[in-house]
Nucleic acid binder design. Structure first.
Lengths: 345, 345
DNA sequence: CTGAAAGCGCTTACAG
DNA sequence: CTGAAAGCGCTTACAG
């Protein structure tokens, strides 16, 4: 199978390559009659423009990079899928680049994908969206980039986020509403800024309800199921335990739930557990876990839209490149009214 | 920041572009002295070859495609990660292409990535590795490709797999060894050939032990947690139930476990449950689920190795392009000796 | 061991 | 509205 080039199409259609180029790129200034003729030949020959030739001669690669800490997590899968689908709709391709900030030399990989792949744009997932040294790499090379749920929103970066503070506040209000007063909070890792905003939302809700936060009940996990398991042991060991636990993500909430089950603590009768993310883990449990639906795929798709949008590419900073997407409180079986044990502490 | 080209390096090093090309591609026939001089300039200028220019002039793209049905599954994440890491080591890039065979026009996307991205090779995940129409697309375009766990191994395709039959047999032997006789088997979807091989392994072990398979206890799921839940209801409803269930994957096994918990059936005392995959879901449960460790990431990495290997690219079919990777039986808490209930049926 | 020439398949910038 | 020329940044094929 010889590959079909723009010349072949041009020859067969009786026009110049430039005209074929105009047609396939949807440019103006081509007579309808000629346009149709060219399109017919393109279809006949099943012509597919060579992406490399196009990228080499134009300044665009039609390639977007997704830079992510841990590409195996469920979070990564949702983000990647959202970006992938939207890229396809926009005729872009997505290259996933794992970035491990703890490994010396990570800069080199990033520089390499910027320079040799000539990325048209980058989506930077949490928590690495908060690494100034990484962002600078894109800024220096003038690669348009969108941060997902960053702690700060630099003017010349795009950003997509949800209201972590508000969502955590809603969840806490809901638990308080159920009668809970002794509410534990399980933080995420220190480098995840969203986790910090969630904790602030938690504290704000507690303060508004004039409930003192018991600092013994505020523990740090690392977002993993395993850390949920361990912190569950710490929180549920003695008789002096919370009546509700709000974990910063669902994987940890699931770990807490499993620990409760092991210790024969009834959920939600004796203990309410809430998570954050609406991850698969929140549904793959019994009872299912009350959580916050985070619009992960939608945020990724929105990031693609921003990067692909000519007006953003033209004018940076751009007012429309900072988006906040809606979340939702999802009430399931792991939370319930605080029982008589409420004042045990 | 003006981009640095091969000419800049050549000029500064006082050699021709061709010599620079030789050095960066690690070719022979360059005096050590000149080689070092060029390398020094490359470092000084932080020169990164333009991947598009290279691809355009050579016949290679340094791009591998991962074609996959459902890019959000945990299976996909492991496969993708294995491929990604190996690609990086080999200086290749990976493009993930979702393929939905149920959606008309899917061929066009595949053709497009073959033709416009000039893929150097393709990794085709199950179950779409068993779609002849898809494989033909690669064959016609002479794109080297490796099938993951296919039902048949065409001569001109590479293949990486594990011994699904043998692994399922081992698991069944183990359950039999624990004293179980009434063993249910939960199949995967019909289009997953690995599921068929696992069922065959199950039946072979039962036959060898001279235990009749109770066909009422052989049910079909779709690999989802939800279907495990539903089939659990079907299997555990009445008093006439199996003492062990072997599910074709962990997500379904988890669904079965949750159903048992809901119905107050003690696992493993009253019911043993086994899965397949060693997915995160098998560990995020209580008790943890006994399963077969499937070398997903390793299979993907091996596929990359095959595709990148010059000898495979040169000679297709190639004897070393068909690999079988080792699995392992992972015994955890969800399986135990068959109790007095064993002969309940 | 080294290099000059030609070309990969497109698009940009410029004419007409 | 259409096209001829030049060029993107490399590598291939060929000389020397």
């Amino acid at each position: 199978m010889k590959t079909v080039t723009i010349k072949d199409v041009a020859a067969r259609a009786g026009v110049s390559p430039k005209t074929v180029s105009r047609v396939i790129n949807g440019e103006d200034h081509v007579r309808a009659e000629i346009r149709e003729a060219v399109q017919r030949v393109v279809a006949e020959l099943d012509y597919r423009p060579n992406a490399f030739a196009r990228s080499l001669s134009s300044s665009r690669s039609y390639l977007l990079g997704l830079f992510i800490d841990d590409p195996v997590s469920g979070y990564a899968a949702d983000v990647q899928h959202g970006a992938l689908i939207r890229c396809r709709e926009r005729s872009y391709h997505l290259v996933v680049e794992p970035v491990d900030l703890s490994r010396p030399g990570w800069q080199d990989h990033v520089r390499d994908s910027i320079a040799s792949l000539r990325l048209d744009g980058a989506i930077i997932a949490p928590p690495i969206c908060d690494a100034p040294e990484l962002i600078d790499l894109f800024r220096q090379s003038a690669v348009p980039h969108v941060l997902m749920a960053p702690s700060v929103e630099p003017e010349d970066s795009g950003a997509v986020r949800m209201d972590d503070h508000g969502a955590a506040r809603e969840m806490t209000d809901y638990l308080i509403c159920l009668g809970h007063r002794h509410i534990a909070f399980v933080q995420g890792p220190e480098n995840h800024s969203a986790s910090i905003r969630r904790e602030e939302g938690f504290r704000a809700a507690m303060a508004t309800a004039a409930i003192a936060v018991d600092e013994r009940f505020v523990l740090r996990g690392d977002f993993s199921f395993r850390s949920g398991l361990e912190l569950g042991e710490a929180l549920l060991r003695g008789p002096d335990r919370p009546s509700a636990i709000f974990a910063c993500n669902d994987d940890m909430a699931l770990g807490l739930l499993i620990t409760a089950i092991k210790r024969d603590i009834q959920v939600p009768d004796d203990l309410s557990i809430a998570g954050f993310d609406d991850a698969a883990s929140s549904r793959a449990a019994w009872p299912q876990i009350t959580t916050i639906r985070q619009p992960k795929a939608e945020m990724a798709a929105a990031a693609v839209d921003i990067l692909v949008d000519p007006s953003f590419r033209r004018t940076i900073p751009h007012p429309d490149a900072h988006l906040m997407l809606p979340h939702a409180l999802v009430v399931r079986g792991s939370t319930g009214r605080c029982g008589t044990d409420a004042d045990r502490v």
